[in-house]
Design a protein around this nucleic acid. Structure first.
Length: 862
RNA sequence: GCCCGGAUGGUGAAAUCGGCAGACACAGCGGACUUAAAAUCCGCAGACCCUAACCGGUCGUGGGGGUUCAAGUCCCCCUCCGGGCACCA
């Protein structure tokens, strides 16, 4: 990186003595609204500027990714913060010599486009593409270093055709399947929702809308095949926040236990209802089981109900209570009710007959929908037994013996079995394994694992999404019954989303009303067929988009595996914590599927994940209803993109919530004005290569190299860019404090040039426009963020004198100056020689002197 | 109930390994420059006590205990705030 000196300045000297220069600099006031659009135009005109080198590049790669936005049409401050973090990182890594991939795209399918269509009578595609154009423009105005040649837009066929391709692959691998089941239905969205999209019984997009349960035949992706791998993989994701890992662990909800069959005493007419299989994590307590409890929807409960109208009515009542609680989002607070069916079940361990109840607190969709009730050792069972007068029988005791435990006694760590036949005396955990093995040997049970995680329901009864590439062959053909499912071959893809579709609020997929779309032919027998009219959950789109960035225009495959294998895993993924479960678990799943299809080699999509805090205003999340929204456009118009971005990094560490205060942006703008004035003032000072010897020159270099070390460390470590920026402010303050000496010719040009260019390089990741302008003014060629990141010189950074605080009994007495690197005895001597210290220890005994090298002295006095 | 965060001046925050609490800013106050204002520059600034002023002292990182020469930082207990999970058997 050589400095080019223009001819008119060719004869300049190191001194900035003439007032003409100062005057001309007064004209060079920091004016972001002028320089930022100028640089933006230059950057926009050069597509190669931010482009990554190919996968054959000899450089080490760095994949820096921010979560792609939904194209609402407007960037909000949360985006600004997210992208300011990612952009600083990407630019820094370029300067560190990495081959950086820094892409951006659009999560462009979804319901808002249909709502807008209804409201404005605009087709969803037009509305979405216009929004994308508007937001891309905003991003360019912000100076974000995206490689637009890899842009991915999920609503375009060249992307979503690969959703369809993957779907067929999954269908062929048995990972996509259709089943009729209870599904979550949002009456506002007029569509089914995945379990992950239901929050406390409400729709994730409509906080006030209670999600209904409906019986529908839907497509599911078999994410549960990977339950264990998704769970175990979390342990290895040490670059992910613990919070996210914990949330995913909770969501997967792995629970080890046993299945045990209780035979139903007496005759049961309904098939498959002769026994009740219960799930328990505490099979060691089975001698204390005093009833069996069924969910109201359990098959055996239904069988009993079919034989007894009175019982049926009571069970219906329990079911209604359960539904009401679920819809209120308050399943945990339901008041326990139950009804005795009058029938008995046989405990296979001791042959005992216990009553069979139906309970409103038993969930049909967890475990087997049936439990054994052990009141002495389970809080819920205890509460229920108290209410209905069921027997409470204690079969677990504390290991140490001693006092009678208070019931319910739920400990299992240091507890042993009592009153449990040959199992008596065994430790609980030991007994759990042995009793499950025994049940298996005898054929009435088995050890098992259950999960909270359910398969991912991906069918949506909406228009604006990826058509599911399946047809139903009306007449059937060899090996397929009439109406059977046929996957479309690759040659029939993409199934294009028809353009002219009437969007209405009626139920059912809008595509179902498009005859041209629905009616087709079977790809196997060419007979009449009907297309699937549901579309895919938009979370399918975002589950693999970051792979497409590596090969965005590939028309023959979702991507070239060689490219993906070079770029993956993502080195740093940055986004909001709100995606901790939905997007981040789906995309982990998708990666594992692609790996098993032989498309990628990595097990996980992202090595490191960073979740930035929210941007708040007046203590609350910005929202239109609260009227506390700050528009990025306004901020940029007033203070420039650089100041807006730098403030977003300065006001708080990136992982914490950030309170937006406009005065703070103004402060950053003032700081940039100072920088601009200083750097332009000394821009023409050329290094003459002479050794720096002046005290001021050395002090400036010292501060510069300390700042380089500090900021490099921040990028490598904690990302506390608020402190990086404060370090740059300290450097600028130091330069300003020495301005008079610099102007008086007391500082070597070498030092001035080094400090001013170093400062500009350090600023480049945070304020790209200003840094680019200043870099050019200094006469350097090439982009500043492709210049080499400065390396801290330890020798130059080292202080030659250090201040050592001296304490007496831990309280500060004074601060003494000693030469850096002084040994402990010298530091101790200096401390004891100090007048204030002498006065403090006068007449007292110094019991002990603690010297912490380079840090402090503490005198223990009595 | 369980699991993750968090609580430091008027405000945002800093203190990365147990070593000067409050760096750097914002808001504020005082001064210089100016006819004046803006802009800019310089200075003050945790609370309380003492003092005419200096000097000096005490307290202080949500609360209470503890470990240590030394605690915002480590240990125990508690409060409050944010987030996640939850009759999951």
């Amino acid at each position: 990186m050589s400095k080019t000196i223009s001819s008119e300045n060719g004869g300049k000297t190191a001194k900035m003595s003439d007032s003409a220069t100062v005057e001309s600099n007064q004209l060079q006031r920091y004016n972001p609204t002028e320089i930022e659009p100028k640089w933006q135009a230059r950057w926009d005109a050069d597509a190669s500027l931010y482009a990554a080198e190919g996968h054959n590049s000899g450089k080490p790669k760095y994949y820096c990714l921010e979560m792609l936005p939904y194209p609402s049409g407007q960037l909000h401050m949360g985006h600004v913060r997210n992208y300011a973090i990612g952009d600083a990182l990407a630019r820094h890594m370029w300067m560190r010599g990495y081959n950086v991939l820094h892409p951006m795209g659009w999560d462009a399918f979804g319901l808002p486009a249909e709502n807008a269509a209804l409201k404005n009578n605009t087709p969803p595609r037009e509305w979405t593409l216009a929004n994308i154009a508007a937001m891309r423009k905003q991003m360019r105005r912000m100076g974000l270093s995206y490689d637009w040649s890899t842009e991915v837009t999920t609503c375009l066929p060249d992307y979503y055709r690969w959703n369809q391709w993957f779907f067929v692959k999954m269908f062929e691998a048995g990972l996509a399947y259709r089943k009729k089941s209870k599904v979550n239905w949002c009456p506002d969205c007029q569509t089914v929702l995945a379990n992950e999209q239901v929050v406390a019984g409400r729709c994730w997009r409509h906080e006030d809308t209670i999600v209904e349960q409906r019986d529908l035949t839907q497509w599911f992706l078999r994410i549960t095949k990977y339950s264990d791998e998704l769970l175990d993989g979390l342990d290895k994701l040490d670059g992910w926040p613990e919070k996210v890992r914990t949330m995913q662990r909770n969501w997967i909800g792995r629970s080890e236990g046993a299945l045990v069959d209780f035979a139903v005493d007496g005759e049961v007419k309904a098939p498959g209802c002769a026994k009740i299989t219960v799930f328990t994590t505490r099979v060691d307590t089975i001698f204390g089981a005093t009833s069996v409890q069924l969910a109201p929807e359990h098959a055996v409960a239904k069988a009993f109900a079919a034989e007894d109208a009175g019982l049926a009515a009571k069970i219906d009542g329990l079911l209604a209570e359960q539904r009401r609680a679920r819809e209120a989002g308050d399943v945990g607070a339901i008041e326990k009710h139950g009804v005795d069916t009058g029938r008995l079940a046989v405990n296979p361990f001791n042959g005992e007959r216990v009553p069979i109840w139906v309970g409103n607190y038993i969930l049909a969709d967890y475990g087997t929908g049936a439990i054994m009730s052990v009141p002495a050792h389970d809080e819920r069972d205890f509460e229920f037994a108290q209410k209905y007068g069921l027997e409470v029988r204690r079969v677990i005791a504390p290991k140490a013996g001693g006092e009678e435990p208070v019931l319910p006694y739920t400990a299992e760590g240091d507890a042993v079995l009592v009153g449990s036949a040959e199992w008596t005396g065994l430790g609980c955990v030991d007994a759990q394994q042995k009793m499950a093995a025994f049940a298996q040997a005898k054929g009435f049970g088995t050890a098992t694992v259950t999960y909270r995680l359910k398969d991912w329901g991906v069918s949506r009864q909406r228009y604006w999404g990826t058509p599911i590439p399946m047809v139903y062959c009306q007449n059937g053909h060899a090996g397929l019954e009439p109406g059977g499912v046929v996957a479309l071959p690759e040659s029939a893809l993409p199934v294009l989303l028809p353009a002219q579709v009437e969007i209405t609020q009626q139920g059912g997929s809008p595509l179902g009303r498009v005859a041209d779309f629905v009616n087709t032919t079977c790809p196997v027998c060419s007979g009449p067929a009907r297309r699937e009219t549901d579309t895919m959950d938009t979370f399918v789109d975002s589950s693999w988009y970051f792979y497409r960035y590596t090969d965005a225009s590939n028309a023959n495959a979702p991507f070239d595996s060689e490219k993906v294998n070079y770029w993956f895993p993502i080195d740093q993924y940055i986004g909001g914590v709100e995606h901790a479960i939905l997007h981040l678990i789906y995309s982990r799943f998708w990666t594992k599927v692609m790996r098993d299809l032989g498309l990628v080699k990595n097990d996980e999509p992202a090595a490191r994940l960073f979740t930035q805090g929210m941007v708040i205003k007046d203590g609350a999340k910005m929202s239109k209803s609260k009227g506390n929204v700050v528009s990025p456009d306004d901020m940029i118009a007033r203070y420039g993109a650089d100041a807006t971005r730098m403030y977003a990094l300065f006001a708080a560490p990136p992982d914490r919530d950030l309170e937006w205060q406009e005065e703070g942006v103004a402060g950053i703008s003032r700081f940039l004005s100072k920088v601009y004035r200083l750097v332009t003032k000394y821009a023409d000072v050329a290094s003459d290569g002479k050794q720096v010897e002046s005290a001021t020159g050395l002090a400036l270099l010292r501060k510069l190299h300390q700042t380089i070390a500090k900021i490099t460390q921040d990028f490598d470590g904690r990302w506390h860019f608020n402190t990086s920026i404060s370090a740059i402010m300290i450097l600028v303050n130091e330069i300003m404090a020495n301005e008079a000496a610099m102007d008086a010719g007391e500082v070597e040009p070498q030092a001035i040039a080094a400090v001013v260019s170093g400062l500009t390089l350090l600023l480049a990741p945070f304020v790209p426009f200003a840094a680019a302008e200043l870099w050019e003014r200094m006469g350097y060629e090439g982009a500043v963020f492709r210049a080499a990141w400065p390396v801290a010189d330890e020798a130059l950074a080292r202080e030659n004198e250090v201040e050592i605080p001296v304490q007496a009994n831990g309280k500060l007495v004074t601060v003494v100056k000693v030469a850096a690197g002084s040994d402990d005895d010298a530091v101790k001597a200096a401390a004891l020689a100090d007048e204030k210290v002498k006065a403090r220890i006068e007449g007292k005994t110094v019991v002990k002197v603690i010297v912490v090298p380079g840090k402090l002295v503490n005198l223990v006095v009595k």
